[in-house]
Computed example of a mutant assay.
Amino acid sequence: MFAIAVHGGAGVMNRSELSPDKEKAIHQSLADAVEAGYQVLAKGGPALDAVEQAVRVLEDAEHFNAGRGSVFTSDERHEMDASIMDGKTLKAGAVAGVKNVRNPITLARTVMDKSDYVLLMAPGAEDFARQHNLPFEPDEYFFTQQRYQELKKKQSGEGDSRKIGTVGAVALDQAGNVAAATSTGGMTNKTFGRLGDSPVIGAGTYANNQACAVSCTGDGEYFIRAVAAYDVYCLMVYKGLSLQEACRVVVHEKLKAIEGDGGLIAVDRAGNLELAFNSEGMYRGWRNDRGEGGTAIF
């Protein structure tokens, strides 16, 4: 038994702004990410490898607010955050505010595997990446016209900084272990080194073999205040809720009560998948060993 789900962000979406070509490309990237993780699981590989590989695919695509497609800060830079967690050992790694690192999720994995720390912030995180020979890319690699236009719109008082953001993956492997990973470029036009929930274990990412693995996307401030990812786990372990019910309570009751828009993906020990959101849409994909799967946006 094994399963994987990915998300490419949830938030403000407008069907009219999504051309047929772009919609097709997004579905393809989501399918490619699912396939990358699924192949790891099908070969008996660990959930941790599956979620890292899936997120790397999404970071390398320019359609999502992570890695190559990251949004611009107020000073026209890219500051990226990521985290990963192993449900078997409860080990985790995370990075915040990193620049020019091609795959922040792999840096987060390296922090978990090669250091005594959980969370590293830039510029130290970048020094750590260089020490471990992780690939960097020039500023031009991260430049996309769409993201630049979003920045200029926001700076002129138009646009919505709560645009779709963040990518993530959750998986259950054949050994019964779960894992979660999340990566983001943050918020358009952000200032003062703002961080959202993505690099925060328990808020944007959580995995524990006792119950589930969770990756969140949406208005980061609200997910931090709700400790959203960990709350799904708590509702299952302490209240005995099913994965479906726990996700419903967190997304549609607790987050909604504090005006938090977004969603999450989650998998439990039985291979059940949940892809819940309270926003207009969430880029998402999933697949399990029973042949069930697909991709969706709205």
Rank of each mutant, 00 (worst) to 15 (best):
V34G: 01
V6P: 03
A175N: 12
G97S: 13
L30N: 02
A54R: 11
P46T: 09
C234M: 14
A5P: 12
D60W: 07
L58V: 09
V101E: 01
G9E: 04
Y117P: 00
A36R: 11
E76N: 12
I201R: 08
A5V: 12
G196V: 04
G11E: 02
A10V: 03
T205Y: 04
L151V: 04
G165D: 02
G204C: 03
L172I: 08
H63P: 00
T188N: 04
D261I: 12
R130M: 10
A203T: 00
R225A: 03
D219H: 14
S215H: 10
A3M: 12
G220Q: 08
H27G: 03
V249Y: 05
D231N: 14
L58N: 07
D49E: 15
G176F: 05
D32W: 00
A61F: 00
G168P: 09
T295Q: 15
I201T: 11
G293T: 10
Q146Y: 11
I26A: 11
E140A: 15
E274I: 14
C234D: 15
K24P: 00
Q28G: 12
G165Q: 01
M13V: 13
D231V: 02
V40T: 11
E126K: 04
R56S: 10
Y141K: 11
S83I: 09
T144M: 02
L90A: 05
A203R: 00
D21Q: 14
T205P: 04
E150R: 13
S29V: 00
G291I: 12
E35M: 14
A36E: 11
M112G: 03
G159W: 08
G87V: 10
P123Y: 11
K190P: 09
M236H: 08
V51Q: 12
G67T: 04
S70K: 01
L195W: 10
A226I: 01
R15Q: 14
F298T: 06
A226G: 01
V214N: 05
H78N: 15
A171N: 09
G37L: 03
K163R: 13
M121Y: 06
P20D: 05
G196R: 06
Q131M: 14
V178C: 06
D289R: 07
T191W: 09
E62Q: 11
K256W: 12
D60E: 15
M13H: 13
A108F: 03
H252D: 15
R68I: 07
V249H: 05
R269W: 08
S70R: 00
S19N: 07
G204Y: 01
A207F: 10
Q39V: 08
F64D: 03
L48K: 10
V200R: 01
D32C: 06
E140N: 12
A33R: 04
K154H: 15
A211Q: 03
D231L: 04
M85R: 08
A108Y: 04
Q210G: 07
R287D: 02
A108N: 04
P138C: 10
F298G: 13
M1I: 10
M1Y: 08
S242L: 07
Y233S: 06
M80W: 07
T182C: 09
A108H: 03
A82I: 01
V167G: 03
D127C: 04
N100D: 14
L48M: 09
A36L: 06
L264I: 13
